[in-house]
Design a protein around this nucleic acid. Structure first.
Lengths: 238, 238
DNA sequence: GAATGTCTTTGATGCAGATCAAATCGAATA
DNA sequence: TATTCGATTTGATCTGCATCAAAGACATTC
């Protein structure tokens, strides 16, 4: 399996590399899988690879001494993992579902960065995207109500699924929630009880449909986005 | 005035450039000042420069249609401004105090980026720092109490002042608050009344001393950090 | 030195979401 | 089919912060 075989073309690293660069990347590439719930990297440790998510979902989170935790990143397939040029990990990285990563050993990857400027350009753009997402998320955390927070999260996930499956933005979207109520609460700065109540409120109001506890159908993306308090086109990616 | 004359060596752009690169940067550099309260760039517009803050304080913020606003970035002297490789501005950039920017025209700057890989490396590191700060801030917004939020903000500002003035982290720090109560509330996802109450509570408890409404003295950084709920060494930069 | 405007403080009250507690559901296992 | 255990829902109550309202505190201008 080589880079262009990955089921999903990584937005992250090799999707725009030249053939030569792909060959160089191939040499330092390996795949690694983690089980649901498994820790990928722990805050304070050093991480010897960078890479991207091929399948599954992982999260980045921060924890206070007393146990309060806040998720600060949600990694879906094609997202980049790692901090090129730095060895310390500053958040906990955890597999939420089973996860396959396409990894590159960090040291040789960094050597490659020195040789191939355009790889660094690419990483800069990825990082700017992550920064935009983080800042959009700050607005959610700081200023939105619980209902708007839930709608925002569902909209993000729905949008990503639609993109991965190449659906038009108009049609109804259906997907399985990749997160537990608790993980959602960590994402949104709420308690899991509030998450449960708000999801069911959105269901009662017809904004979403639920089949079981995890399967969600969004009949009309626009009304979900309206609930999220975003302007029509807005809304962030990861 | 050339790049190395800036009162503060920009962490942002030219502080580690070679002489050649500095010469190239000089050619596309200019200074620009904004008055307190003035808008530097408005969301949706395009911005024709990147640069860094030489003096004064600027903020990045996002606003919902109904007027709720959340600050997503605080730019202190030496911080980088702009989004290399992109023209759209996705937040409002505003001068909080009078601000001097050291600007580089964006187009030629981007050309320079292609020629000088190490400049891109530098920008990647800057952006990773901003991302770390944004994520730390997400923990503040999502999980901290009003008192902890205030202590966190004061700690950030105090730390930055200490760094700029090269004070040892142990000694008492004194500074003028660069933000109004309202700006602080936008930063922290609170109301200005709550900000006022919590500041006065911290004063009453001896964590900070106030002289007038803006001048703050932190007799013991460690107790402020403890109030912020951070572990001793933790705490982010911008 | 009165008037005006901005920033800040202070008080009273209300409510969204937290907290505490106990069911209920569903999947996996025996 | 019964048992167990994690995930989720539901209910009752509490509380931290928002909201609404009004009164200082300063600086600036006339």
């Amino acid at each position: 399996m080589n880079c262009s075989d990955c089921q999903i073309r990584h937005r992250a690293v090799c999707s725009r590399c030249s053939d030569d660069e792909l060959v160089s990347l191939e040499k330092i590439k390996y795949y690694r899988t983690f089980h649901a719930g498994q820790t990928i990297a722990l805050m304070g440790e050093s991480m010897d690879f960078v890479g991207s998510v091929v399948t599954g979902i992982a999260t980045l989170s921060q924890t206070m001494e007393d146990g309060r935790t806040q998720m600060v990143g949600l990694l879906l397939p094609s997202d980049f993992v790692g901090r090129p040029g730095r060895d310390g990990v500053v958040y906990n990285v955890q597999a939420t579902t089973d996860v396959t990563l396409c990894c590159f050993y960090r040291k040789p990857f960094e050597d490659l960065m020195v040789q191939t400027p355009h790889l660094v350009q690419r990483l800069l753009q990825i990082t700017l995207d992550e920064l935009d997402a983080a800042r959009e998320w700050m607005l959610v955390l700081g200023r939105k109500t619980a209902r708007e927070k839930l709608a925002s999260l569902l909209a993000i996930i729905a949008r990503r699924y639609a993109t991965l499956r190449k659906l038009s933005p108009d049609q109804a979207i259906e997907f399985d929630l990749p997160l537990t109520r608790e993980a959602m609460s960590d994402y949104l700065g709420l308690t899991l009880e509030t998450v449960s109540r708000q999801i069911n409120a959105l269901k009662k109001d017809g904004v979403i449909e639920l089949d079981g506890k995890r399967h969600v159908r969004v009949p009309d993306m626009r009304s979900l986005i309206a609930e999220a308090g975003d302007d029509a086109d807005g809304g962030f990616v990861a």
